[in-house]
Design a protein around this nucleic acid. Sequence first.
RNA 1: GCCCGAGUAGCUCAGUCGGUAGAGCGAUUCACUCGUAAUGAAUAGGUCCGCGGUUCAAUUCCGCGCUCGGGCUCCA
Length: 657
Amino acid sequence: MADISVKLPDGSKRELPAGSTAADLAKAIGSRLAKAAVIAVVDGLERDLTTSLHDGAEVAIITDTSDTGLHTIRHSTAHVLAQAVLELFPGSTNAIGPAVENGFYYDFALPGNATFSAEDLSRIDAQMREIMAADQPFVRGELSATEALDVFRDFPYKCEIIERTAKKVADDDGLDAGEVSADGIVSFYRNSDSFLDMCLGPHVPSTGRLGHFALQRVAGAYWRGDHTRPMLQRIYGTAWATKKDLEAYLHRLEEAAKRDHRKLAAELDLVSWPDELGPGLAVWHPKGAMVRKQMEDYSRDRHVNGGYSIVYSPHIARSVLWETSGHLGFYKDSMYPAMELDEGVKYYPKPMNCPFHILIYKSQQRSYRELPIRLYELGTVYRYELSGAVHGLMRIRGFTQDDSHIFCTREMVADEIASLLDFVLDVLRSFGFTDFQAKLSTRPRDKSVGEDDMWELATDALREALAGAGLDYTIDSGGGAFYGPKIDVDVKDAIGRSWQLSTIQLDFNMPARFGMEYIGADGQAHQPVMIHRALFGSVERFFGVLLEHFAGAFPAWLAPVHASVLPVASAHEAYASEVVADLRSRGFRVELHEADEQLGKRIRNAKLQKHPYVLVVGEDDVEHRTVGVNPRGGEVERGVALGVFGDRLAADLAARR
RNA sequence: GCCCGAGUAGCUCAGUCGGUAGAGCGAUUCACUCGUAAUGAAUAGGUCCGCGGUUCAAUUCCGCGCUCGGGCUCCA
């Protein structure tokens, strides 16, 4: 038989017997590669290892160490999950089961709208391991759409996917999970006589290639993510190439749980959510409030230096304001209901600060010479979030925005947005964030106000600003606010999680609704453009993100307490008090822990509070006016002169360490 | 709002196959006064989330509600 020649990623060529598969190629290159191989990329397309190679093909063997390889392992594990569920739960039907970050899920409908229990999960897990032990091959096949509809006639969700694709229905919601190719050919994989699943593939060669997985939880999920459609039963799992990787991942989850801001808020006595207040409402304890004060003071200073004017506004306003702004038309579902007083006059708690700032603008006639006007308020708003959405400080019903509204001319918009982005990123960097990702959100499909050309103009301005700032961004089609498009900035925290914080929103609409004007150089009245901008987003969420980012160990400039002073014994308490008074007089936040318990115990307790310094003072220190410095994460140093320690702490604060 | 799970001392949790409950930490008191991550002893502390139902008897079983957690949707 004639040989074929294939090209490898390093540019080298390799001769193989005709009819060789990608698996044969891997074997020919080396036994270790053959063992690690998961799929192949042939001429740029992901294929099963069983794919026959043609002469001249460019082939890369993908192993389980690559992202693509891991993705395949997770996807294949999801299929085994589906097989196990269909075997254990007669009459159940499967929907979609893609790989996701770190794992996979699969959605099912059980007969009679039954649900999975925790015990079901362990049964399913056991069944999956049997399927893997049986080492069933993933065998690919192809059908026409018509044939597929017959084969999958008992699987209504599969049929819906086939029909949607067959009709070439425009699908921009990305939920087809790669089960059907665009050309109307339906591919499927058969693992055994009793199980086949529709899928584009590729898959690992056989179920024996899998095994380092864990089923994690059951959740409800709407079919196609649409809350008007049936709720399916979703099983989430994680899967990895090796047992070690799986264990490392599970360990990472435990570590992340330790930094949960709700847990730390309780341990460090920062914030609580008393039931008496209702869901999504928090109270700030003294230590949490001190951290918040530092954040707010810094924010205020930066804004004043950045050309903003501080303003204040009330928490409620008459319904007419919200009618004018459009909130009652487009945002009412998220607003707390009205208080009705004074013979039927309705007052609504504010869900946003913008209408108030507009009224401040409108309090007098404005000239183009005054623009841009930048108003800034730490404004507390109330939003009636869905009960299931409320989450600690990250999603809360009463929260404070570091809210700015910038009023400028159309000509100023591009420069203003560009400098705004710089300002936002610079302030975020001051808090220790370095990794940013932006998102540009365009006009919502259903609820929005304004003319198309306005939206286009606004969206273009934002796009240009992003390009100018050199920031990576994605497009969220239809994700804009009802009054305009926006840029959202996400930050990555210390353990790689992404949080949506800042938002910059362009608004040509509200100025029109409120009839805002300025007198231009031409002596004529013009309409200003409005930019809504929150930098922290919400002070509460930002605090929560900082808390998790630093795992409770705030840098000194934010820390609620800089140092705890511990006298070795009661005899040293008088000197300890002097140390406290001295440091406080220099503006430091210091606590005295009297000698009512053993020193080791008090040190431990102080350390658990994660404050930057523990100071121990004993006989030697009384004599020499020194302190023993035990820094967070550092080595103990005895006999440091009190003034020297104060200088060191002052340096930390100045450098925002 | 929807699906699943949970709610026992201030905290973390055990327990009762239906007969009103227990540990550690914390608190209080006493003793110890100690040089860098847990001294010892004693004491107090609970409508077992709430309301109904079943039962001689409910923290336990059932129903409803509230709150929290994990998701979906939504979002700063």
